[in-house]
């Protein structure tokens, strides 16, 4: 492993100041550390942001649920506020990786990494999340740009993720048997006046399936899903599943999610 200079920032301002084009912020490190170990990433500076208290915690209001960037998966999974406001989000957190990953990994880290198979990006899209950074607020639809790519700029730090509390929601996934990443994951959320159907694991980046969303907005019933065309074009095909399999799983999980709502 290539070495780096380790820093521990006491506040967001200091962390942002230490950042450069050759640095990474370190929260749980559940992707950053393996990437460094495997030689997939090298950095001159690693900036620990776990000691910045303002970045952690869960706040519920009547319309939204705001989760600090360094809040761990285990905290989201066990939070009474999350279970009450958006139970599907607590269930999603409970299904990430394994207990040791959930004890370290953070929501902000997951979103900043934007792994095409990660769970949290689908929650952001389905729940109309707003990503609060140290310089602006970004809508989830504009945040996830492509494979491992987000709208974040150098030195920009996610401070919190604010989710809209839906009327109903449910997340279904087929976890990879080894990593528990989603081979395919579908997050259905029914808001007042609209439905979102966020899909992860199927393409190079999370997306809202507009056709499914439109059909379910008119009639929120699993029976309408059979009439929606789901093309496998552009979908991932690998040793875990073919593109056609993934397309079919989206239909299966969308139905299951609607029925579980």
């Amino acid at each position: 492993m290539k070495t780096f200079n380790y820093h521990s920032a006491k506040d967001v301002k200091e962390a942002s100041k230490l950042a450069s084009s050759n640095s990474a912020f370190l929260a749980g490190g559940m992707t950053t550390i393996p990437s460094i170990k495997l030689g997939l990433a090298t950095y001159k500076d690693i900036i620990n942001i776990k000691n910045i208290k303002s970045l952690s915690g869960i706040k519920a209001s009547s319309k939204t649920l705001k989760i600090g960037a360094t809040t761990k998966h285990v905290e989201v999974a066990n939070s009474k506020d999350v279970k009450k406001a958006i139970p599907s989000l607590a269930a999603l957190a409970e299904g990430i990786g394994d207990p040791q990953v959930r004890n370290r990994g953070t929501i902000g880290g997951s979103i900043a990494n934007n792994d095409p198979s990660a769970d949290y990006p689908s929650a952001c899209i389905a729940l109309n999340a707003v990503i609060h950074t140290n310089s602006r607020k970004i809508e989830a639809e504009k945040f996830f740009k492509g494979m491992f790519e987000t709208a974040l700029k150098s030195g920009e730090i996610i401070e919190a993720i604010e989710f809209s509390i839906p009327e109903k929601s449910n997340y279904q996934k087929y976890p990879n048997p080894a990593s528990r990443y989603a081979v395919v994951g579908v997050y259905v959320a029914k808001h007042k006046g609209e439905v979102n159907v966020a899909v992860t694991g199927a393409k190079s980046c999370v997306y809202n399936d507009k056709d499914l969303a439109k059909a379910l907005s008119k009639n929120f019933s699993s029976s309408v899903i059979d009439n929606v065309k789901i093309s496998s074009s552009g979908m991932n095909s690998d040793i875990h599943a073919s593109a056609e399999y993934r397309a079919n799983m989206i239909r299966v999980f969308a139905k299951k999610a609607v029925e579980a709502c």
């Binding site: 380790y6 370190l26 559940m30 550390i33 394994d98 040791q100 004890n103 370290r104 080894a178």
Partner: peptide, 29 residues
């Protein structure tokens, strides 16, 4: 495995289990 999959390296940090192959010592000051 040294890739945070096998769990042979699990220890407790402040009472909670973590994989010690996927944490920096400097981070646990």
């Amino acid at each position: 495995c040294d890739t945070s999959q096998c769990g042979a390296c699990v220890v407790h940090v402040d009472g909670k289990s973590i994989k010690s192959c996927t944490a920096f010592a400097a981070d646990l000051n």
